[in-house]
């Protein structure tokens, strides 16, 4: 038998990841710095911070809830359809459904759920679910034939194929689908709040722009940017980095 050596990954991808990470933190540093300068110069003195915090919190919680529900629904449907022999039948159907413009359907959501927080969450779910579902289903459909055969021959058959093969196989796709889904989710939640006047960040900036109070809008925008950045750096970036290391060819 021969001995063998490990080939540690000191590759260019690691260095470029570190560079991207540094750039992102630098950008955030600039953003926070500008905000602090504006605070120091008293630009934000008219901002009603408790009201803004409450609005941002409402919006963020709605988005988090909608994302959680969409993740469960999207991944479950994608795994079941991808596992079944009907993936090719469902794929075009999902394609048509996801192309329906969400905001054109908002009257339907209002009709069924009223001007409520629940309506906004369900509306956001209907937007977030598609990128997650498509990303996972595409990953399953495009799995390398050898990998799929290996799963079969080594026993991942029947329903066991889902947790032991399809779910881990589609993890990177679930991540990218989630990132796109959450970006769409921000728009959906804020947009729905603007349309329905339900308390939240959308309603807050609508009121701020109507009364011409631009510092409220700017403070709100900074607050959302900080949340988006924090979620990206603390959750998605480490997961993406780990996933790209693990799933590298």
């Amino acid at each position: 038998m021969i001995g063998s050596v490990v080939h540690p990954r000191t590759s260019a991808s690691h260095r470029s990841h570190a560079r991207r990470n540094k750039r992102a933190w630098a950008l955030m540093g600039i953003l926070v710095g500008v905000s602090l300068l504006l605070v120091a110069y008293g630009y934000f003195k008219a901002v009603e911070w408790p009201m803004l915090a409450d609005a941002v919190l409402h919006t963020t919680l709605r988005l988090a809830l909608a994302y959680g529900i969409a993740l469960v629904i999207g991944v479950s449907i994608a795994l079941l359809v991808g596992w079944s022999p009907f993936a090719d039948v469902f794929f075009p159907l999902f394609d048509i459904l996801q192309n329906l413009p969400s905001f054109a359907l908002i009257p339907l959501f209002i009709y069924f759920f009223g001007y409520t927080s629940k309506m906004i969450v369900i509306f956001a779910v209907s937007s977030i679910v598609w990128p997650i579902l498509f990303a996972v289903l595409t990953a399953i459909k495009s799995a390398h034939k050898d990998l799929s055969d290996a799963a079969t021959i080594f026993g991942a058959r029947g329903l066991r194929r889902i947790p032991y093969f399809l779910a881990p196989l589609s993890f990177p796709a679930m991540l990218t689908g989630s990132i796109v889904g959450i970006a769409i989710g921000w728009e959906s939640v804020i947009g729905a709040e603007i349309i329905t006047n339900v308390a939240g960040f959308g309603d807050f900036i609508k009121g701020a722009s109507a009364s011409g109070v631009t510092e409220d809008m700017l403070a709100g925008t900074f607050a959302i940017l900080v949340i988006v950045f924090a979620v990206n750096r603390l959750i998605w970036a480490p997961l993406l980095s780990e996933s790209s290391k693990r799933y590298a060819e």
């Binding site: 050898d146 990998l147 093969f165």
Partner: peptide, 13 residues
């Protein structure tokens, strides 16, 4: 039966 694949087909996770 068992199989060894040309492209290894190891589970990356």
């Amino acid at each position: 039966p068992a199989m060894v694949f040309q492209n290894y087909a190891l589970f990356p996770w």
